[in-house]
């Protein structure tokens, strides 16, 4: 028995892949996830509250709180804020390597499901959600919005992502970080096939601007295990470079290097206060939602 995993609770991503509509996937996962939380202390974000701000010339004097004026001898406006809680930016890696799959679901499809679920979930929490897709450049950028219908724009972009180009973290993400003026939660969904130093340098830019971050490292089970049955020529999906190899010889070395890469990123993420979660494409999306929820709680 594992923590929190009852036998039937989580939806197998392979099952989700049979559902054609991305919105339906998101709804299925998120509604199941939320109904599973019950009275969890992590729910219950306030959406309707008032605040005070100082009177500015031109403000409607009917909204001045005269009781506060009586106490402080200053004019304060009673103001009702919108329903937005926080900004959530989903950064989705759509490089060619994300198109890899050894099972029914490619990393790109899994990442799209995850992004859709997170967007849908964030919207349920009345958060503003934005989406950025990138490969070696910034491909699409949808600013964070909270309005109804924005989720459709996000799903539309997710529906037509086409992983073709190579991965580059520094250039697009550094440029993106410059444009983030309001703090929020930055969610990176990627297979992180880039030098660890570049990745960390990019993440640091977001973190140092006060954003809370969570990194979802999406890997295919085959990438984690490297269990190929026989010799072959491996072709890099991004560079089209080929290499001849005998997998049983290469496996140990490959796994060691992958593990070192992951450990470096984990360690650096830990030092930066970034939540890191490794997901393989057979893993239920609920785990990712839990991690996101914890990060969101921290950001509040």
């Amino acid at each position: 028995m594992q923590a929190t995993t009852s036998q039937f609770r989580f939806l197998d991503p392979a099952v989700l892949s049979k559902i054609a509509s991305l919105e339906l996937v998101a709804r299925t996962v998120v509604e199941g996830f939320v109904s599973g939380l019950h009275q969890s202390p992590y729910l219950g974000f306030s959406v309707d509250f008032a605040e005070y701000r100082q009177y500015m010339p031109g403000d409607d004097i009917r909204r001045i709180d005269w009781k506060v004026y009586a106490r402080s001898d200053r004019y304060y406006m009673k103001e009702y804020e919108g329903e937005t809680n926080t900004n959530v930016y989903l950064l989705l890696d759509i490089s060619a390597s994300m198109g890899y799959k050894s099972g029914p679901l490619s990393k790109m499809e899994y990442a799209s499901y995850l992004a859709a679920c997170l967007a849908y979930f964030a919207q349920q929490q009345k958060d503003s959600v934005g989406l950025v897709t990138f490969d070696e450049n910034l491909v699409e950028k949808l600013p964070a919005r909270c309005r109804l219908g924005h989720i459709s724009s996000i799903l539309h972009i997710l529906d037509r992502v086409n992983p073709t180009a190579s991965t580059e973290f520094r250039k697009p993400l550094m440029a993106l970080a410059e444009t983030f003026h309001r703090r929020g939660i930055v969610v990176l969904i990627s297979d992180l096939y880039a030098p660890a130093a570049d990745i960390i340098r990019s993440l640091r830019q977001f973190r140092f601007r006060g954003n809370d971050m969570v990194v979802f490292h999406v890997l295919d089970p085959q990438e984690k295990e490297f269990k190929f049955s026989r010799s072959f020529r491996l072709e890099d999906m991004e560079t089209k470079r080929e290499i001849l190899m005998v997998p049983e010889e290469a496996r140990e070395n490959y796994l060691a290097q992958l593990s070192a890469h992951i450990e470096t990123i984990k360690k650096e993420c830990g030092a930066l206060g970034i939540d890191y979660l490794q997901l393989d494409t057979s893993r239920p999306l609920d785990y990712a939602l839990y991690t996101y929820l914890v990060t969101r709680r921290k950001s509040m």
Binding site: Y100, S231, E235, D236, E238, E242, L244, E249, Y254, Q257
Partner: peptide, 22 residues
């Protein structure tokens, strides 16, 4: 001198292997 070609997401960790001819 060849074997079947298999697309793989990245050779980032494979290229650094000691190359052995098949």
């Amino acid at each position: 001198d060849d074997s079947r070609k298999l697309p793989f997401s990245s050779l980032m960790f494979v290229t650094r292997l000691p190359k052995k001819s098949l």
